[in-house]
Design a protein around this nucleic acid. Structure first.
Lengths: 228, 228
DNA sequence: CCAAAAGTGTTACTGCTACACCCATGT
DNA sequence: ACATGGGTGTAGCAGTAACACTTTTGG
């Protein structure tokens, strides 16, 4: 074989891009670092891979530590390996993104770590290569949401059509026609229309829907979920 | 912060899924391992990340060692971290895929490592988690080739329409109508039609085309390249 | 002149886009 | 009664899919 003598044992970090949706904008959760290096700057939540732990588990663990949340959709984004990305010691980091629903879970969000939600567009600059991670995560989210019903992870169990539309508008940064949107979503036949109405935002009230995983799996589905 | 005392320094490997196209089938390059562990079994080419080296560079280096090829399109697939994936020592591996054009480069392929091309469908079982890596790589290739002109990396500089069609058929494992295919490709306006003909496969001969990066970049392009 | 592959257009259909008005309700 | 947001349908258009015959030329 060839010479591997220069191979190196290094730390593997895991950083999490936590996406949320407040009904208007796509948000990310950031913390103000209370420790060195870069104390006081904004960063993603993160930690290190442990012995006998798989990356996915590390990501889940880290998310749980910082937010108290379990059972959250997470997906690997990529691995970032700039030699000097961490000034302390050679550290490579694998990024994961998480989709959480702000409304239902905001109470659980511990304030211990001065975590705060920022709109994706006007988040402060982040430490290390975290900005790059966020950009990559957003790209991956867009691609994934085109073909899989993951948007619902960002919404409460029950939601109005308008909220769903706003969500896709926020993810893809476009504006959509509500009639076309509703027609398309209906044609997918993956939502259950409830009898309940949400009356918080209008006198008439708007019907609530729920994602129906059964329906979704029953239908053999074309490659694309929503072509916006 | 929380307890990171269990964090671990580990080896970071890089494994490369080398895709090629022989005019008919999509292929991957495998080596028969001449070293332990798993000597004699088939595997991807791989190596370890070195000090002061970025993952992308490691992938490039490893590809070059095994194939003699430089300047090859490579892209990160993901990072695989099963605790026992390598029996010797905790090793996490980041997979990259490479697109190379078998015809032009086969002579350079060194035989030192008993490297061999296999059709993606009937490749032998691979060591560790390499089969999973291949599946992931193929998924990523499909997604990428939908929106970016990377298919050409798998073809010689000059190619016939039929070859291009066969390539897409091989990647997506579908069969396409040649008239529709040609019309669509033409409408993209990213190929230069040459005056030369390839007469190896018919008496009439078929025109050769070349990917025109200039044309490609000039046009502001919709999200999708080829909807097959 | 025959075999073998290359090259070429049209039609039907499907799905997307654009667009404006009435409905239900609480105050 | 009116103000507010919710809900609905259609027609034009564009892009996709299906489809078969003619051309070239070497042997």
């Amino acid at each position: 074989m060839y010479d591997d003598s220069d191979k190196e044992r290094l730390l593997l970090a895991v950083d999490c891009i936590v996406f949320g949706f407040d009904g208007e904008k796509l948000k990310i959760l950031l913390i103000k670092r209370g420790f060195e290096p870069e104390r006081g700057k904004w960063s993603l939540i993160g930690g290190f891979l442990r012995k006998s732990e798989v990356l996915q588990d590390a990501a889940t663990r880290i998310l749980s530590v910082y937010t108290g949340l379990d059972d959250i959709y997470m997906e690997q984004v990529g691995t970032f390996s700039d030699v000097d990305r961490d000034p302390e010691e050679r550290t490579v980091s694998t990024a994961y993104y998480a989709l959480i629903n702000i409304a239902e879970h905001s109470q659980k969000l511990s304030h211990r770590y001065s975590a705060q939600w920022f709109s994706v567009e006007d988040a402060p600059p982040l430490i290390f290569d975290h900005d790059r991670m966020v950009r990559h995560a957003l790209e991956r989210l867009k691609i994934k949401a085109e073909t899989e019903p993951i948007g619902f992870e960002l919404l409460p169990d029950k939601f109005t059509m308008l909220r769903l539309q706003k969500l896709y508008e926020a993810i893809y940064n476009v504006s959509l026609d509500k009639r076309n949107f509703i027609n398309k979503v209906r044609s997918l036949d993956i939502l259950e229309k409830l009898d309940e109405k949400d009356k918080t935002s209008s006198r008439k009230g708007s019907f609530l829907y729920r994602f129906d995983a059964e329906k979704y799996h029953r239908a053999e589905r074309s490659r694309s979920l929503l072509n916006l």
